[in-house]
Every structure is written in structure tokens, then in C-alpha cells.
Amino acid sequence: MSTLTTPPDAGPEPDSGLLAPETEGLEEKGERRRGRRGFLIGAPSLAYLVLFFAIPLGIVLVYSFATRSRTGLTILGDWNLDSYQRLADSLVLEIFWRSLWLAGLSTIICLLLGYPLAYYLATRPPRLRAVLLVLVMIPFWSNFLVRTYAWRVLLASDGPMSGVLGWIGLGDVRLLFTPFAITLGLVYGFLPFMILPLYASIERLDFSLVEAARDLYGSGWQAFRRVTWPLSRPGVIAGSILVFIPSFGAYVTPEILGGSRTTMIGSYVVRQFLSARDWPFGSALSFAILAVMLGAAVLYFRSGGKNL
């Protein structure tokens, strides 16, 4: 849980205006010296992130304006917007919408399964709550590839699920390599991302407010609708974003559980680099993913969320 709760916000800057005028110079100097030491402690990490994260991000941006030669090399220098224009191709748009749709659907399913579970967890006695929470955390950090692979085994045409379906008389339904399989895999992979922030915000909720609503003759549904739900909204939004972003850019899940007709944008990006060798276009696609991600993040901060 600790990994999901942001440390409290940086807080106000030291307010030097409140200091007595005669000590102001000294205090400020000390404060600044302390600040400089703090910066030096963080400097190596900051430098690392600039070199191995910020600069790479910039390089992708530069590449997205470059041209692909006919042999698949990237020509830096002939800058243009061709790669971005290709984002409007019908094939690309189809993949883009499919990714949005599958990610959105997975997010909603996660919310429908996760909200009641988080509520249940938050209203258990502390000891049981701790145990159940650990049970949610374990799959959260367990090997993602293997957890996705498990569904490949389960959904295979000679696998256990087909057996169950055949037994209840549904017969030959193909499960693997369908949008259904991808959605299932995404929900399975990212459900804990939804549960944990939801739990964090419901647990913090003051239940006496719910009781007050009931005392004032609100129905259970009204109390939920008017009190519990609005108060847990930050968790709903944080969880939705944490599920939506990785689902939208997913690569492993659609590769293992999806088929050739269910390509998602993550796989499409990888294809540009590992087989089509069209790096400028792949870079532009990566930025499209980033744009969606940033859009989701802005939405999150607009709604006043804080506990990512």
C-alpha cells in the first residue's frame, strides 16, 4: 500500500516574512545552505533521470519529426510532420479506438469489481483487513507475464475453460485470441491497481457521515449516492487512471491473449521498431500514447485528486 500513497505534498515554502527582521538575513542564509545541501544529495539521482529519462524522451520527440529512408534507416535532418499525418490513417485510427475501447471497458469492469471489494476490505476489523490487503498485494507485484500466460493456458481450445463451457453445453466457443480474452487479461492484470487506491480513500472516509445520512432517513442507496461515493471519488479517479494508462499502452497482454485482428496500439508501436523498422512513425505513435496518458493525468489533477 505504501507504494501507492504519495508522500504528503511538499507544503508551503518557508515563509521568511514571519521572521523577526534582525534575524532574517541569518535565517535565510542557513535555510539556503540547507537547501543547497538537500539539492546536492538529490543531484546524482536527478542527473541520472535527466540523462536516462528526460533526454531519451526528447530524442523520441526529435525522431518523430524525422524521415524513414527506403531501406528502413532513419534520416535525421529532413524534418517533417509525415509521421503525425499518418496517425490519421484508417488502420491506425482503428487500432487507436480499439485500444481506447478495450482499456475503457477493462477500467469499468475493474471499477465494478474493485469498488465493492475495497468497501468490503475497508469495513472489516483491522486484523482481517490487513490479511486481505496482503492477499490483494501479492498478485499485484507477482510476475505479470506469468499471470497473463496462466490465462493462455486456461482459455486454450483444449484447456480447462473450454472444457467447462462444453460441459454446460455452450460447445465450441473460441475464447483465445479474441477481444474478450484481452479484456479478461487486462482486468486480471490491473485489478489490484484499482482496488488499492479505492481502499485508501474509502478507509479514510468518516463513516459517521454515512450514519448521519441514515439517521436523517436517507435510504441506503441515497446515503451511498450522496455521501460515500462523492467522498471516495479521489480513489475512483486514481484507480481508474492507474488501470486505464497501462491497459491502453498494453503490449504483453494483447500479444499473448489477442490475435492478428485485435492488435492494440502498444503492439503496433513495437512492430514499428522490431519488424517494420519505421522509427519515426513508431516515435509519433509513442507520443500519441503519451498524449492520452497526459490527458488522463490532467483530468485527474483537475478533479482535485492527490493520492496516486
Binding site: P56, I245, Y251, G266, V269, S286, M293, A297
Partner: peptide
Amino acid sequence: VIIPDVTMAVMMLLF
């Protein structure tokens, strides 16, 4: 933490 794997992969390769 929040950037999709695929985007980060592309960044590192090009870098």
C-alpha cells in the same frame, strides 16, 4: 512509474 512500458522501451532504444 506511470509511463507505459512500450513508450519507455522506445525511449531507451533510441537513446
